[in-house]
């Protein structure tokens, strides 16, 4: 019984880690920079396809993940410079529309390049094997997800909450005018941050491809989940989105084991009620307020 509960917990946490890995970039672009970014899933998809393509060509798995980060980050930076920058001053509607436009384009391009069917990702052999974790064996891939997620969570927490870069970013988000006055290069800071956010999405899309399978509809299909993580966690709050991602992963796994029929819409119902109860999310960040 206890081992069954532990299995569910591990399944939930590893799924939650994938959600967190991808959403952490969205926490930056949407939570901190205040852009309603529905295109975030597209950058995760781009990363996933890049890594999938590279691994199929025989490139080392970790190099492929790095490649995913580079490609997703570069395209993200390009998008920031060309189409996102005029958006910062516009309303939510323009942001929603433009980012939906990006989703359409990304979906079409992915279909043209890789076909309409799920695209396989080649994982190294040792990740495909089950390993013993004391009371039972467990897929190494899911343990790998938990480790990677934990490492990135720690890095992001340090970067945003404790480094000079984080302090600058929070200051620029709070009041970009004053930040400019004290001599900060806000444009560069935003472009850099956007690149980091998209690169993280690319990494998440690549390592999470075993759970969220790669297909052209990826960009639209999962973006609601990523948005839920960010909004439920509280915009701009890393702790919040971490907790929300874990909760979402565990609830969804529980649902799959026990109430298979009701799971998906119960999840959205829970989000609905939670947002009515706490419109600012679980742990609203002060910077985003």
């Amino acid at each position: 019984m206890l081992s069954f509960a532990a299995t569910i917990l591990l399944d939930g946490i590893s799924y939650g880690m994938v959600l967190f890995l991808i959403s952490v970039g969205l926490t930056i672009t949407m939570g901190l920079m205040r852009v309603v970014n529905l295109a975030h899933g597209s950058f995760a998809m781009i990363g996933g396809y890049t890594a999938g393509y590279l691994t199929q060509k025989g490139v080392n798995f970790y190099l492929a993940i790095a490649g995913a980060a580079v490609v997703a980050g570069a395209l993200g930076g390009l998008a920031e410079l060309t189409v996102y920058r005029p958006l910062y001053r516009k309303g939510e509607l323009s942001q929603v529309l433009l980012t939906i436009g990006i989703v359409f384009v990304a979906t079409a391009v992915a279909t043209e390049m890789f076909g309409a069917f799920p695209y396989p990702m080649v994982f190294p052999d040792y990740l495909s094997l089950p390993v013993s974790i004391g009371f039972r064996t467990y897929p190494a891939y899911r343990l790998f997800l938990i480790v990677v997620g934990a490492i990135i969570a720690a890095i992001m927490w340090y970067l945003i909450d404790n480094s000079l870069y984080g302090a600058k970013l929070r200051a620029a988000v709070d009041n970009s005018k004053i930040a400019r006055c004290v001599g900060m290069n806000v444009n560069l800071l935003f472009t850099g941050t956007f690149i980091i956010g998209c690169a993280l999405a690319g990494i998440g899309g690549a390592v999470g491809a075993g759970i969220l399978s790669l297909e052209p509809s990826y960009a639209l299909k999962y973006v609601v989940l990523f948005l839920v993580v960010v909004i439920v966690g509280g915009e701009g709050s890393f702790k919040g989105s971490f907790v929300a991602a874990m909760a979402l992963g565990i609830i969804d796994t529980l649902g799959k084991y026990f109430v298979t029929q009701a799971a998906p819409y119960l999840l959205y119902a829970a989000v609905f009620v939670l947002l009515l109860w706490r419109p600012q999310g679980l742990m609203p960040s002060k910077a985003a307020g």
């Binding site: 958006l87 529309l97 939906i100 359409f104 384009v105 990304a106 979906t107 079409a108 279909t111 052209p216």
Partner: peptide, 18 residues
């Protein structure tokens, strides 16, 4: 191409907003 419309509509949308 069956998916080309998505590309065109997406680009039209981006251009309209901008």
């Amino acid at each position: 191409s069956p998916y080309f419309w998505e590309l065109v509509v997406g680009l039209m949308l981006i251009a309209t907003v901008l």
